[in-house]
Design a protein around this nucleic acid. Structure first.
Lengths: 132, 132
DNA sequence: CGGTATCCGTATGGATACTG
DNA sequence: CAGTATCCATACGGATACCG
């Protein structure tokens, strides 16, 4: 298992297995993929563009993320045997449960951002007073 | 902002701010710290040992994680001016809200592990059939 | 179009040593 | 004990090229 085996640390098998799954769904791109698929299914490039509205993702990382989520049973991959190729990604019932919780958490952070901002301002101010 | 400035990518300021906060609470060690502090407060090394039951964390990463969570207003740091030093970490009301959701998500993944395992087995079997 | 393969710079984070 | 500072291996992930 070398440097470029294409698997993130969150995909290798160590520690308790459910920690890994948690890492998958809360990973950088996992969150955005699940959130997008919660609303509707997407084709690969379409999904890349949708996610790109928030943060740019490379093809490699998107493919990797989708594979991981598919293997875990959260995402369904439907490759139509047509030319040009067409692959649709949708969320599974299991994935929906995960995605809803992830989205709830994301919404919560959004809603509490002002509290966080104030906490940060206070923290930074306190540090500036001690170490100017 | 160089190589060893001690801040993870999740701590640098890019993309929508609430994505950053989400990264903080769902980060590798953030999850474990919040989960531990949800039950009671801990001293630094005590917390390190507690988390170590699941996965070993370096002093550096634990300190970094605690600082980030403190700055976001999720964790309260109480440094007693005694010798030897004693620092207690506890969760704030805001942090509790986050931690409860994170714990719920963690519990969910634990509860659904058998579904995930089956999905993985099916996925792997399908791949083995195609590319033996 | 929807990927996979390869290369590669660099942020990430672990080990160690040191300090108050 | 509770950190900070430093060093450094590596895995993370972006860019590019190419294939079915």
């Amino acid at each position: 298992m070398g440097v470029s085996d294409g698997r993130s640390w969150a995909q290798r098998e160590e520690m308790c297995p459910h920690r890994l799954v948690l890492e998958h769904v809360t990973s950088r791109w996992g969150v955005l993929v699940l959130d997008a698929l919660l609303d509707r299914s997407y084709r690969f490039s379409e999904l890349r563009r949708e996610i790109g509205k928030v943060s740019t993702v490379s093809e490699k990382m998107l493919a990797q993320t989708l594979q991981t989520l598919e293997r875990d049973g959260f995402v369904l991959r439907d490759a139509k045997p047509v030319i040009p190729p067409r692959v649709d990604y949708s969320i599974t019932p299991l994935g929906r449960e995960a995605a809803e919780q992830v989205r709830a958490l994301a919404r919560w952070t959004g809603a509490r951002m002002d509290d966080v901002q104030r906490a940060r301002a206070a923290y930074d101010a306190a540090r500036e007073a001690t170490a100017p």
